[in-house]
């Protein structure tokens, strides 16, 4: 039995195939591009080749993400909230709050002890509270996302970021660089800024432990550190592949249908 999960995000498309026992057999991601359908199909074909199977051998395909409507070969569509709840709870039954930070939207989902969604909030359409903010700031600072995470942890100084809009923040970062502020402190300021925005959104649903963080930004340990500080948490649960949790949730839900 093969079930495929597709997560067509604003920036990246993530896809994976699981077997009947919910084991991940293979996974792949690429930028979403402008033709979501073709990119997704190519990714899935690559996965099939890796596993030595054909596309037809996949029993069912489930899709999620903001580009899900553009996919014409999937059997099921799932909301981003549902797949997040499904996949995180599958890994850890103690999670009550899921924070997801994607490229173009971020959301907080509240679960009860059965893993049912009881509340959720979303921040969308404004880059100030999303992963794009970090990505563009990294580009402005001319450092990789990996360095971004490491540098942030080395900073011991808190400097404020006054601009909120990503466009104005970019000018602010440029002038901070010109005035000789250490890059690591700027990086930390960026992580602190985005963490404080995400944290206050999370407070609207009353954060309850355990808290899980998913989405690409979970790999940025500087951001995780800032978020922990802001929410006054000792621990944040981060799955091994935080960026694949949407696709995994879609595959899990497909398997059950």
């Amino acid at each position: 039995m093969y079930f495929a999960g597709l997560d067509v995000g604003a920036r990246y498309t993530k896809t994976l195939i699981i077997d009947g026992d919910a084991r991940v057999l293979s996974k792949k991601m690429s930028t979403s591009g402008f033709d979501n359908n073709i990119i997704s199909k190519n990714l899935l074909n690559n996965l099939c080749m890796e596993l030595g199977i054909t596309l037809e051998e996949i029993n069912k395909i489930g899709v999620t993400g903001c580009g899900k409507k553009n996919i014409d070969f999937a059997n099921y569509e799932f909301s981003e909230t549902m797949v997040a709840a499904k996949s995180v709870f599958f890994f850890n039954k103690n999670v009550r709050t899921i924070i997801e930070v994607g490229a173009e939207e971020s959301r907080v989902v509240k679960l009860n002890s059965d893993g049912r969604i009881i509340d959720s909030v979303i921040n969308e359409k404004c880059a100030a509270g999303t992963g794009t903010f970090v990505e563009l700031m990294a580009r402005t600072l001319e450092i990789t996302l990996k360095d971004f995470s490491e540098l942030s942890m080395k900073s011991e100084k808190k400097i404020p970021m006054n601009a909120h809009c990503i466009v104005f923040a970019e000018s602010e970062v440029v002038s901070l660089i010109h005035s000789g502020v250490d890059k690591k402190d700027i990086v930390r300021a960026v992580n602190d800024a985005i963490a404080s925005r995400i944290a206050s959104m999370a407070r609207r649903v009353k954060v309850e432990a355990e808290v899980a963080l998913i989405g690409g930004l979970a790999k940025n340990s500087g951001f995780v550190f800032s978020l922990k500080n802001n929410l006054e948490l000792d621990n944040i649960v981060i799955p091994d592949d935080p960026e694949y949790m949407g696709a995994f949730g879609a595959a899990l839900l497909t398997r059950e249908l």
């Binding site: 909120h164 404080s196 925005r197 959104m201 609207r204």
Partner: peptide, 12 residues
Amino acid sequence: MLKYICAECKPS
């Protein structure tokens, strides 16, 4: 930053 600062008075 009102959206963020006032968030606690405005639970969902």
